[in-house]
Amino acid sequence: MSSPKTENDLLTLIKLLARLPGIGQRSARRIALHLLKKRESLLLPLAASLNTTAQNIRNCSECGNWDTQDPCNICVHPTRDKTILCVVEDVADLWALERSNAFRGLYHVLGGTLSALDGVTPNDLNIPKLLERCRENGVLEVILAMNATVEGQTTAHYVSQRLTALPLKITRLAHGVPLGGELDFLDEGTLTTALMARLAL
């Protein structure tokens, strides 16, 4: 029979697991049981990995990415183009762009978008550091890779307004038809933006 302490430890684990995204109480119980069954092959390595992550992963003071070193691997990479800076809302967006393997410049994580309702003002975004990097690191182009939402684009316009005084090119991601998208199935908004951003052939 299990002691109250064991029960408490297990309950704590289940409660913590249930706080992870996409996991409810039932899944948390299943995961906890699975971990206990695979103590050597899963539970202990996972615990060690969590501990290492908590100890070593930190925010890059340059771009805002998560890494074991500061500045991060991307910022110190010798073959990256340091004259192009891609501004993203969140680290998840940075990772998405990295997965595409299509961009070989540096990044800058803003940390959100302007939102009156959530109380996010320009002071809450990582804009001063962006201006400092643009001024001091010889940046020639800033790509504003914000989400194609009203708030994302409002933030992009705000950042672009702050950057206008600097001698650099400001660009943004294209909006329009996704790869493999069939016009018949696209929504009206996507079609409107695609038509407005049409290119000459």
């Binding site: 009203v150 409002t154 316009h157 933006t193 407005m196």
Partner: peptide
Amino acid sequence: AAALLSEPARLH
């Protein structure tokens, strides 16, 4: 919003 994404003042 779709027609205004590139028009900062109108989007604001």
